[in-house]
Design a protein around this nucleic acid. Structure first.
Lengths: 368, 368
DNA sequence: CTGAAAGCGCTTACAG
DNA sequence: CTGAAAGCGCTTACAG
């Protein structure tokens, strides 16, 4: 394999200086444009990205750091970001942090000097990492999660977490639920805390108290959603409805409910934050708080690109809206079931929940 | 913001030459190691990736080109590749092609000079693109799809598509199905053709013919799976079982069946190639041909890394195994239903399918 | 409009 | 082990 042609090779072949070739490449007017063009084609010349980068200090790349691409939300974010960035001439360097601050640190290290800017879903809200981030020297846009103290003035593209949690609560309340559970995300993350607070606030405003044992905190993983569901069902009395704070925990919750043969919504109403790809073909179809996922990635990318293009001004804080997608996983609660009042049995504890709430393993998948 | 420290700054501060700093950075023995170390820390020195890249001709990055990250299979591949590559010190440049050869061309162009090697899921099998690929000059590993004429000797990491298609067919045959349909992928792609051929071959060996109208070809998208399902159900008589050749078309198929109120597996048995995240909580749980998805990305990355490390030798062709995951979406077919023989009504055409196969829209999600 | 010179920040030979 | 020089392939001023 012969070594690739350089700008000098092109210049010699075209009988001009390297400067003329450089000018031609950047679209400026040159005399011997045709000769240069032919030389480039004949030699198969491609400008060296490394040399350009060294000279200009620019890489033409954007770093995108997410917890986990296999989470459909982040996959959608990546797609939105990739689509916009390609349109603007940037390529995307993708990294997973697996929700680990340590990995995040490694990853930001590995990205140093390889990107002109960063879109980051921080693994932790701790301000400590801010110090590291300022050091990177490149513009950063936070996506979906903020830092606890964002004094550094980073741009952020969030979703209205509190509003989404509130919508979930209000919907369940309107259906007549009063014993309402929550599978919350980590309370030290923006979406975990925001969704939780909006949810709890709306319940409180309606005068509905949620027992401590009805708030089970997970870590946004499927496994934690599964375990939290088991814990929730073991309470006495168990809730008649549950809000699951993200898609992966919802998948875990659905697996647990399926394994236990809990009927949705007859025995438990379920609503999740973020839509699932198969939500509508589940039995029953899952009711969710949805949002525009790809658009969130696209927005963050446009914001970053503006900064890269020199836009100054105060840090932006974009909050995208959520919407309630009513499908079939939430049923009418006790407060609206006049003919079937719910009995609050104070005597029944732990292993002796009321018969109607006993979760027994029943065969599934054999009914039509 | 002051400009970042260079190797010269470190050298001055430590009272040595830039060469000693360079030596120190590459882990070789130096006299004033402690002084250099302190200077690096004090100045917050980070070597310039661009300068290193220009000098060494290496980028420390791998390009990963997939059709669509929001497809769970490719997301898993990305995760596997990212994990392995980070362990080896590479970062991942990710691009989507949206199954378009034109976009693939653009993307490969954008990646030129930014990566040391490429993991590519080619949008098309056409050999024509091979020419372009050789021009890139970097090692390439094909993932999941091969080129029609891979004379160029690229490494490939495939899954046993024909074997998977065969397993699906054999399972449906064993259940007693004889009127079997297929929603195939594009026949000019490796997985599309491979799965189709394995499937058809197994049916032929069993002496079961599949009518032309029972093979509906899609483009691997959800929408095409939806439409193909409608076409399949419009045949007369419709099949009693269907094999869907990928995950996204399976999602589309499930949506169509759900919309039409077709009961699975009573009216139609369904098996898909590639598992779905919610497969087990569907009603009924979906039976699939599964494979190790992340591992496929990881394998391709290791293979590429070996090449980048100088490994020569003939092109490798790794074929990963599939396995049948029996859940609940396939029922017993006519050949094993002695008490309920299936009537082959030659007189019924098109708009007059037998009553038992009339697909009427019925409400869903309200049954337990 | 054009070209000779300098330099972006490193590392690879080459002498000491 | 150490350092002065050269050069990777471009582009930014600077003269003509």
């Amino acid at each position: 394999m012969e070594s690739p042609a350089t700008i000098s090779d092109v210049a010699s072949a075209a009988g001009v200086s390297t400067m003329s070739v450089s000018r031609y490449l950047t679209g400026r007017r040159v005399q011997r444009a045709t000769e240069i063009e032919r030389a480039i084609r004949d030699l198969g010349y491609r400008p060296s990205a490394a040399a350009r980068s060294l000279r200009s200090g620019l890489t033409g790349s954007i770093g995108l750091v997410v917890p986990d691409v296999t989470n459909h939300f982040f996959a959608a974010v990546v797609k939105g970001a990739e689509s916009v960035s390609r349109g603007l001439g940037y390529t995307i360097l993708l990294c997973n942090t697996d929700e680990s601050a340590e990995r995040e640190h490694e990853v930001l290290d590995a990205l140093h000097g390889k990107v002109d800017g960063l879109i980051l879903v921080p693994a932790t809200e701790q301000a400590e990492s801010t110090v590291d981030l300022r050091r990177t020297g490149v513009p950063i846009v936070f996506l979906d999660r903020d830092l606890r103290s964002n004094e550094a003035g980073f741009d952020v593209v969030l979703v209205d977490n509190a509003g989404g949690g509130r919508k979930a609560a209000e919907y369940l309340l309107a259906l007549g639920h009063r014993a309402i559970g929550e599978i919350a995300g980590p309370l030290d993350t923006t979406p975990g805390r925001g969704r939780h607070e909006g949810f709890i606030e709306a319940l409180a405003e309606a005068g509905v108290e949620i027992g401590a044992q009805h708030v089970q905190v997970g870590d946004f993983s499927k496994e934690s959603g599964y375990r939290a569901t088991l814990r929730l069902l073991a309470t006495s009395p168990p809730p008649t409805a549950v809000f699951v704070a993200n898609n992966h925990m919802a998948i875990g919750a659905l697996r647990a409910l399926h394994a236990l043969g809990v009927s949705i919504p007859a025995e438990l109403s379920v609503i999740s934050f973020d839509d699932l790809e198969l939500a509508e073909v589940l039995t029953p179809p899952l009711t969710v708080i949805a949002r525009q996922m790809q658009e969130q990635g696209a927005l963050a990318t446009r914001l970053l690109a503006d900064r890269l293009a020199g836009s100054r001004g105060p840090a932006q804080r974009i909050v995208m809206d959520t919407h309630l997608l009513i499908r079939g996983s939430c049923g009418v609660g006790p407060a609206r079931q006049a003919h079937r009042p719910r009995r609050a049995s104070k005597t029944n504890r732990q292993n002796s929940t009321p018969k109607s709430h006993q979760y027994v393993k029943t065969p599934r998948g054999d009914h039509k």
